[in-house]
Computed example of a mutant assay.
Amino acid sequence: MDLRRPRTLSLLIPLLMAALLAGCSPTTTPSATVPASAPPAGGSVISTGASTNQMVSTLPQAVADQWNALQAAGKGVEWISTPNTTDVTTTDLAVGAADSQGLVDRINAAAGAGTDRSVLAALGDLKSPAGAPVWVFSPLLDTRDPLDFNELAFDETPSEVVKAVKKAKALPDLKGRVVSFVINPVAGDQAELSDLQTGYLHAVWEGLAKAAGAKRVEFFDGTGTTPGQGTGPAVAVPRPDDVDTATEGTAVVCTLPNPALFIINTPTLIDRGKTLQGLKKCLAKAPENYRVVVEGHTSGDSSDNGRATVELSKQRATVVAVLLKDLDVPAKAIYSVVGYGRSKPLVQPPTDARNRAVVVRFEVTG
């Protein structure tokens, strides 16, 4: 038996080897690779478009650890980006290590648009498996009914807010989920929300999430130190020293917004010092000879003006009258202190949040 290779095959082998070696040469351009698809979603990330007064969001270490655990399990997230409530996009993404920071960078780059934002609506768009965790990056200041913080103005009890959302049948299905809110707070013209306002925000969202079936609710601070590039409108959160001064005939009328002044359903001041500053601005514009009328007002259906509502408005007016005395307004100059409750709305409709106010009138005498 002849075991020698045929001559033609002997010649071909070196040629084939040379071709293979040439193909492995570093001077050869490799073919393009198709990027791997995102892993299946093991959770959901919601972000709202940034507003004009919002700092960049940061990634809390606890959340980074949770995302690393997802990566280790071969899972990613669905990212629901809501620059407003009409332009909502959902993208499946990998998380863990550099991918996690990449997602936060994309969240920061999503500038707000339009006049509304709604975490509540986005929570109703979850497609991740039932019981999967949810992370929300937002100031949590929704601006669309039935949860509009421009209307709530931090002066409705959290339980009443939850009740209203239930009545509107707007609660999402969060059964069995752990919901983590990474808050990047904004506060209208304020530098920051007060501790009491932040506590109110937590109470509202914890109440909503629990009512929607969440297994656990967590809050993290996600406030960065660099100004963001947001373009969305800021929510109108009044400051304790924010006083609207107007002239009615010869009288000077100053309106102080209740939500910035008092703890919910109490006559207790949120920030006495800043309220005094607001009253100083008001007093500086008072006529030379005056008497003072202090009025307490609340918002709501004027046909439902119970004794408790009237009494609360009078107590709040009394607190402001005492502050005027601290500013050296003579006691004899304080002509009357009255609580109107809901009976004399300052603007229409009576339910408008601007009706929650204390009005100080400096009327000319003599």
Rank of each mutant, 00 (worst) to 15 (best):
N184P: 06
R144C: 01
D189M: 11
K169T: 07
K167G: 10
P158W: 06
V186P: 01
Y200F: 15
R144Y: 10
L193H: 04
Y200T: 09
D189F: 10
D195N: 14
A170P: 02
V179T: 08
W135K: 03
F154V: 03
Q190V: 00
W135S: 12
K163E: 15
P146E: 09
S138Q: 09
V134L: 11
L174S: 03
E192S: 14
V134P: 02
R144W: 00
A168D: 08
L147A: 06
Q197A: 13
D145L: 12
F154N: 08
G176L: 12
L193F: 00
V178W: 02
E156P: 05
A187E: 08
V134W: 00
L147M: 05
D145S: 15
V134Y: 01
E151R: 09
V136D: 02
R144D: 13
A153N: 11
D173A: 13
L141M: 10
V161F: 07
E192V: 08
L171R: 07
L174Q: 02
Q190W: 10
V182I: 15
V165P: 03
K175F: 04
Y200Q: 10
V186A: 00
V165Y: 09
S180H: 11
D155K: 05
K166M: 09
K175N: 13
A170D: 02
L171D: 02
V136S: 03
P158Y: 04
N150M: 01
E151G: 09
V165L: 05
L201T: 08
A187Q: 04
S180Q: 13
I183C: 03
V165R: 02
T143S: 15
D173K: 12
V178M: 10
L196N: 13
E156W: 12
L196Q: 14
P172H: 04
D195H: 05
L193V: 08
V179R: 07
P185Y: 05
E151P: 00
N150Q: 05
F149H: 14
I183A: 06
T198F: 10
L196P: 01
F181A: 12
F149G: 09
W135N: 04
V134C: 05
D195F: 07
P146Q: 11
D189L: 13
V161P: 08
V134N: 06
Q190R: 15
A170H: 02
A191K: 12
K167Y: 10
D173L: 08
T157N: 11
L140M: 15
P146G: 09
A191I: 09
Q197S: 04
V179W: 07
P139Q: 01
T198M: 14
A191E: 14
D145I: 08
V179M: 01
G199W: 03
H202I: 04
F149I: 05
